[in-house]
Simulated assay, not measured.
Amino acid sequence: MAKTALLQQGLLEFTLNSPQNTDTFGFELANDTKVSLLAPGVVRFEPKDSIPSRAIVLSAGIHGNETAPIECLDKLVSDIFALEVKLEQPLLVILGNPPAMIEAKRELSVNLNRLFIGKHQNYASCYEVERAKQLESLLDNFYKSYQHLPAYHLDLHTAIRSSKHEKFAVYPFTHGKPWQKSSLALLQACGVDCVLFSNEPASTFSYHSSAKYNAVAFTVELGKVHAFGQNDLSKLEQLSTTLQQLLSDSNLSSLGFKPKQAVLFEVSDVVNKHQEDFCFSFGQSQANFTEYQTGYELAKEGSGSVVIGNGPKAIVFPNDKVAIGQRAVLLVKRMSLSDIEQAEKNHRLE
């Protein structure tokens, strides 16, 4: 029976055993929490008789080889099944790209995290394009079912490269709305002090939730890519503890923003790849947040080059193997404590 297999195997193993199975089913746990398997790797929890204060989406595996957060969410789901987590909030858990997980690849055909907010319409049909459509629909149904509640979405990843800040988050572009200290406090509680403030709209899963549903949403990077079974999940204990608090507590006021502990960056430049010969001046081992001074030749492309202006600036997510037209690297500038204080005075940070 599918219910028994899901409970015994856990969400990850169950999904990888049948990544294309379109069967859906539902059941109730012993505490009357309603469980619905909506699609491969997608399960919805609806606690009975609780008075919820937020609607929560937790996703991982949008890139199939980013395994640590997949394993983290798999354990969380198993703990919910075992009634070891007090679940008071409606929850949608998404393992994004099961076929890519099986092949230990970032994607099969197209970067799934570039297909949201409707961008999948610009691509020919393939697994990731159809999956983006499906995930948008499931997300829409979930948030609309709880439209009276604040929406939350943590999209969990690991990075291709090592990083001078092992854990960091991308704060989606807010279209002029202030950054929220309560959101930064939540990230700090998860063990994520380093945050990048985006400077333009994106097609990522977290931006989709932020822009369309006004969700407290982030792309959260949790270390470096490793194969299944090779992750040290003890490094994610703070995250796991805070996720349980997010799922249970109605009031998160105990989480306070610590500005002196914060490492905040603003994105200054988005460098896209326009030609096949685009290549960086540094090697594949160069870490995220490596800083370069004004005048440094960052990359070459065709007969031109990309040069750092108004430095120093640090690199984040450098990848010269992306498809033409996609982002090759972000350039970011660090905010000082006085910058943070000024942002508060100017109501950019509230």
Rank of each mutant, 00 (worst) to 15 (best):
A2S: 13
Q8T: 15
G10K: 01
G10D: 05
F14G: 10
N17E: 14
P19N: 11
D23S: 13
F25L: 09
N31H: 04
V35Q: 07
L38M: 13
G41F: 12
R44A: 08
I51Q: 13
A60N: 09
N65V: 00
I70S: 00
D74V: 00
I80H: 03
P90E: 09
N97L: 04
M101H: 07
R106W: 04
N111S: 10
Y123G: 01
C126S: 11
V129K: 09
E130I: 04
A132P: 02
S145M: 08
Y146P: 00
P150S: 00
T158D: 14
F168N: 01
F173A: 03
T174I: 07
K177G: 01
K181G: 00
K181Y: 03
S182W: 05
L186I: 10
V192W: 04
F205R: 00
S206Q: 10
S209T: 14
A211D: 15
K212E: 12
H226A: 14
A227M: 02
D232V: 06
Q238E: 07
L239H: 03
S240M: 14
L243S: 08
L247P: 12
D277A: 12
D277C: 10
F278W: 06
C279I: 13
F282Q: 01
Q286L: 15
T290D: 06
E297G: 08
A299G: 02
S303Y: 11
I308K: 01
G309I: 15
I315H: 08
I315C: 02
V322L: 03
I324P: 02
G325D: 05
L330Y: 15
K333W: 00
K333I: 11
Q342R: 13
Q342D: 14
A343K: 06
N346I: 06
